[in-house]
Amino acid sequence: MAEDKGAGAKAFRLANALLLSLLAVAAFYPIFYVLVASVSDPVKLYAASKVLLFPQGFSLAAYKIVFTNSWIWRSYLNTLFYVVAGGALSIFVTLLGGYALSRKYLPGRSVFLVIVTITMFFSGGLIPTFIIVNGLGLTDTVFAMILPSAVSTYNLLVMKTFLQGLPDEMEETSRIDGANDFTILWKVMAPLAAPALAVVSLFYIVSIWNSYIAPTIYLRNRDLFPLQVILREILLSGNTNSTNLNLSVSGGNEDYQAYSDAVKYATIVVATVPILCVYPFLQRYFVKGVMLGAIKG
């Protein structure tokens, strides 16, 4: 970009950087707040000002409570299972279907694309979907967490558009060598589609990790609850009884409240850090993912 010099331009750049810094601080403060609060001494934190800049004392007591709670552990493992099994299925179906739909010579392709695209604009809605899933007997099974949202049309179109953009020669050369569609997809296309696979995987994983509506609607059995449902109980309903959080502290009601608050912060950190660790590695693919999804047909 052209560099213009002079006092005006300098002032502009300074003001811009300052505003952006303020914005970044404001956006990051809530996250910082939770981190700092989670390692603070619960009783000191409770008494302290809510405008937190530093940890109030230092204590991992809240984490100890979180890590020794069997409901949190169990739901954590459930979520990991849903992410691995559901994510694998989603990526598999999306890659296979996306590849087939990306082949322009496939007879019937335009019909299939219409079938897929309509669902972006019109759906059965909450209640009919619930009735179908219920009618299929998926309620209260792990499949309720995996199947109803297995494919995201957005992700499918990202995959399709990416594969469509790969040069035709790749396929033609392999075909001359005698490869069939399965081998072409597996040996040639899938490795080339690594960036699209990365983005789509991330989108699927984040959405399964963060999903709380499906389990709320479809699961009654607490043993199947994913992390987000337990989180909701702890964080928003203030319901620590059903999760058996061991908040038995020596002090009175105030101390109980203090520990209950601290546990909330620690729970947020434990539930959020893993997903935030994944994303910086994939950040360079974001633009591609967003742009591919925005292109139609």
Binding site: F92, V93, T94, L96, G97, Y99, A100, L101, L106, F112, I115, V116, T119, S123, G124, G125, P128, T129, I131, I132, V133, L136, L147, P148, S149, A150, V151, L156, D181, F182, L185
Partner: peptide, 16 residues
């Protein structure tokens, strides 16, 4: 390759 995808759309999008 397309079949699982279409099956998904029929069951979870078009049946509802």
């Amino acid at each position: 390759l397309l079949a699982p995808l279409l099956l998904y759309y029929v069951i979870f999008c078009y049946l509802p």
